[in-house]
Design a protein around this nucleic acid. Structure first.
Length: 835
RNA sequence: GCCCGGAUGGCGAAACGGGUAGACGCAAGGGACUUAAAAUCCCUUUCCCGCAAGGGAGUGCCGGUUCGAGUCCGGCUCCGGGCACCA
């Protein structure tokens, strides 16, 4: 399947030897510094950023190359437009990925990673990317992670980094804590193992402080809509209300028990209120019970003596239960507390339950259950035989009968069984009811976000140590900036164990340290930070890699940032891109940056599959770029990758189709080396040329690479239509157009046409509308909307001329059986005669 | 379950704000060149009827708007991706 089946490339016949051409130009670029950016003095700076890769042992993935080539073409095009383009690349080499692989092959990651990076660099260099290797970075370099640690301190100082005990996602296979974002449907993002729940002390970043800002800015960012949407959903703004339910003293109702609160602070004083969050305050007349999360601080207070055992047991089970089962199993479980609260709308007593389908992390950790109009509440009510009321109905008949399914419709419906609010629509009712409850002090409008704080602690080895020291006397002390970096020690045995602490906790010589404040005995934090922190600021570092006394130089940052164009995969739509935005905002607030959005423009590229199936090692259909570059040349491979489908949608990689692109370059080569200089270029060819210049110039910025290539192919077909050799002026501009896609062959042909300097310093062909204009147009002719033929008329012809031409055509005229009742004429396009 | 994409020839795919469906490429068939093959070049290629001229049908399915729908609207089906008890 992966074996190349077709014939050898047309090397000899065409005289085009990509291996030789590519070697020559890669050497020359390197020698002449063609791809090096003058970051200090470059004019019209254009920062063309691509998401840096994780340097895996398998080498460069074709998906990487697809992404990079797309960025490279855009960058080269901008350079040809007169920008100073900065196209750096680095390596995201910390993290569980590397560590797990190192464990598997029994090599230390510190030995493995440099080897992988060397291999990546080699592969990237032969791919013809315009990378400025003078600004390469690796997140594992102490000179880099020194500043990652510095970043942590910036957040710490501003109160944005804090430590708390938390139920966390624990991967029993990787033996580490995972961020919520790294848990995919209850499984570890990296290894697929079922995630469990553990309770650990963790470092968090207060990204939730920035929820509304992160959300609001999306409105004006020039990003792929799909990415913005993913972020919006992730941040998850919910507009709703917080409603208070007064807990009733059981004595008033049953005369058997009273509520022992035993609480301090906010809840100490009776009467007791339970605050719930709801997005459907309009349904409050249908709230027939309350549910609080098992972890809710009021549970003990709410539980009556006769329910104490059952509730205790339930909470214990919930605490032990892994997050997976709790999340994935939709089966409703719960237990009655024995207490009741008053529904502030109906004044009726409703029971208070404890159930794990209510999450402590969201809202207030308590809900009002409206089983008639919420699927989960309905299911729960069915299970425990709780009353189900209808308070919303559609306009159609039979809406007052009993409900056998939750009715969740919100459009074209109205309230019923809701007192004075009957007849109102959902939106109206929300406002009216919240206002009504608020007047009595029972409710207020509230906005909630799904976004959680970012847990950055990792109980692993292969990451930057978190720069914190714990002193018995002084408490939690940040490592002074002057002492950075806190170097990751070389440890032979870096395996995580299931104690829940980092392997660094086993290195006493490393963690024992004197307190920077009092000099007393102290110990280092042994957790390392999340890889996503490494990648949340790397784009700030690139221009400033030569500076070791600052994370990013002020002047260079002003010049190059925010990033002009960022291209990457949508798999990072919520994690990396959100964290980068957050970190940038924090640095802005800290006065370190004068912008708060790091990426002015972002475009997500599509995914590339092979023969209609996802590429995977197990399927054995992974494309190894080396083989293809070897066989066809980097120019052909690059151009093919961009030709196989729309860049932002991805496409289907087919071995057979690579040949077509190679044939195109072969023909381009032949036409160029055989080009004549005598005589004049053909007018019709020039017309097509200028149409092509226009098309390609418009397509590249839109990342419509596939159609740009198609247009160049079509043009070359026109150039070659006649027997005579092409004229130099017909081919030379095509060499320029093709340069962003196939840089080596373009340089070679450009040189053969007598130029000394790089084609990338020669500018872009200019489009001349006058030369592109057609003097005759073919327009479609319809009779009664049905295609009956075409007529060719001089450009700019009026309706009358078009009709005359159409009627002169017997095949069209025969359908015009009567005088047209109506004529639709679209100049240059179409004529429709309605008879 | 919810939210996004998508569905067009044998295949990958084109089609600017409704306006000649299938550009460009692959594969296939035929031809030229060659002792032969490869490479290269030329022609054909959505389907059906027809020797042809020409005609009919056709962009996942059903319906609608319009002079005109791949494109817009309503209702489905299937495929891909993401989220998942978020009240």
């Amino acid at each position: 399947m992966t074996e190349p089946t077709d014939r050898a490339p047309a090397t000899e016949a065409a005289g085009y030897d990509p291996a030789a051409v590519e070697r020559k130009w890669q050497e020359r670029w390197e020698k002449q510094g063609t791809n090096q950016t003058d970051v200090e003095n470059g004019v019209r700076p254009f920062y063309a950023l691509m998401m840096f890769p994780y340097p895996s042992a398998e080498g460069l993935h074709v998906g990487n190359l697809f992404a990079f080539t797309g960025n490279d073409i855009y960058g080269r095009f901008q350079r040809l437009q007169g920008h100073t383009v900065f196209e750096p690349l680095g390596f995201d080499a910390f993290g569980i990925h590397s560590e797990n692989f190192a464990l598997k092959v029994g090599t230390h990651p510190a030995d493995l990673i440099p080897r992988n990076i060397d291999n990546f660099r080699r592969q990237l260099k032969r791919s013809g990317l315009m990378i400025d290797w003078g600004h390469e970075l690796s997140t594992t370099d102490p000179a880099y992670y020194k500043w990652t640690q510095w970043l942590f301190l910036q957040l710490f100082e501003r109160g944005l980094a804090y430590k708390k005990g938390a139920a966390v996602n624990w991967c029993p296979n990787d033996k580490t804590v995972l961020a919520n974002e790294q848990v995919i449907a209850g499984e570890c993002e990296r290894c697929g193992a079922k995630v469990e729940q553990r309770f650990l002390e963790q470092w968090f970043f207060r990204i939730t402080d920035y929820s509304s800002r992160l959300l609001a800015n999306l409105d004006w960012l020039d990003w792929s809509e799909s990415t913005k949407l993913a972020q919006r959903n992730w941040i998850g703004r919910s507009d709703g209300a917080e409603v208070s339910f007064r807990v009733q003293d059981l004595a008033d109702f049953t005369g058997t028990a009273t509520i022992a609160t035993g609480l301090s602070g906010e809840y100490a004083a009776r009467p007791l209120d339970i605050r719930v969050f709801t997005t459907r305050p309009d349904t409050i007349f249908g709230a027939t019970y309350l549910v609080v999360a098992p972890e809710h601080p009021l549970v003990a207070a709410l539980t009556t003596d006769d329910q104490r055992d059952a509730v205790g047991e339930y909470r214990e089970r919930a605490a032990k239960q892994d997050i997976v089962t709790r999340r994935v199993s939709k089966e409703k479980t719960g237990v009655f507390t024995g207490s009741f609260a008053t529904n502030p709308a109906t004044q009726q007593p409703i029971p208070i339950w404890v159930a794990d389908y209510v999450l402590m992390e969201y809202g207030t950790g308590a809900i009002m259950a409206v089983p008639g109009h919420d699927e989960r509440d309905f299911e729960f009510a069915r299970t425990f035989d709780l009353p189900i009321l209808r308070v919303v109905a559609g306009n159609d008949a039979d809406t007052h009968g009993p409900l056998d399914a939750p009715y969740t419709e919100t459009q074209h419906v109205h309230l019923v069984n809701s007192g004075e609010f009957n007849g109102l629509g959902v939106e109206q009712a929300k406002h009216a009811i919240v206002a009504w409850l608020a007047a009595a002090g029972h409710a207020r409008g509230v906005v909630n976000y799904r976004l959680h704080d970012w847990c950055i602690s990792r109980q692993r080895y292969w990451g930057p140590p978190i720069p914190i020291i714990y002193c018995d006397g002084c408490g939690t002390v940040p490592v002074p900036e002057a002492d950075l970096p806190v170097e990751l020690p070389y440890v032979e045995d870096f395996r995580p164990d299931d104690t829940g602490v980092s392997p660094l906790a086993r290195v006493e010589s490393w963690y024992r340290v004197s307190c920077p404040r009092c000099g007393g005995q102290a110990r280092r934090e042994t957790d390392v930070s999340d890889t996503f922190l490494d990648s949340a600021w790397y784009f700030l570092r690139y221009p400033s890699t030569d500076f070791d006394d600052v994370p990013f130089d002020e002047a260079l940052t002003k010049k190059w940032l925010p990033v002009t164009s960022y291209i990457g995969g949508n798999e990072h739509a919520v994690l990396h891109l959100l964290y980068s935005r957050f970190i940038t905002m924090v640095l802005k607030d800290a006065g370190r940056l004068d912008f708060e959005e790091p990426f002015t423009r972002f475009r997500a590229h599509g995914m590339i599959v092979r023969d209609g199936a996802k590429m995977s090692k197990s399927r054995g259909n992974v494309v190894n770029p080396d083989e293809y570059v070897e066989r066809w040349g980097a120019d052909t491979f690059r151009t093919y990758l961009m030709f196989l489908g729309p860049y932002e949608e991805g496409g289907d990689f087919r071995d057979q189709s690579v040949a077509g692109v190679r044939r195109f370059l072969d023909r381009l080569w032949t036409s160029a080396v055989d080009a004549r200089t005598d005589g004049a270029p053909d007018a019709a060819v020039l017309r097509k040329l200028h149409q092509t210049i226009k098309k390609v110039s418009e397509d590249i910025p839109a990342l419509a690479y596939n159609t740009a290539i198609a247009a160049m192919m079509a043009y070359l077909n026109v150039v070659r239509r006649d027997e005579r050799p092409a004229h130099r002026d017909e081919v030379l501009p095509l060499v320029q157009l093709v340069a962003p896609f196939a840089p080596h062959i373009a340089e070679e042909l450009w040189e053969r046409f007598g130029h000394d300097a790089s084609v990338f310093d020669a500018g872009w062909p200019t489009f001349d509308p006058a030369l592109a204009a057609e003097d005759a147009v073919t327009i479609a002719v319809q009779v009664n909307g049905k295609m009956r033929g075409t007529v060719t008329v001089p450009a700019g012809s009026a309706q009358e001329a078009a009709i005359a031409a159409a009627m002169a055509d017997q095949n069209i005229a025969k359908f015009v059986v009567a005088a047209p009742k109506k004529v639709i004429f679209v100049p240059g396009r179409l004529l429709n005669l309605v008879v």
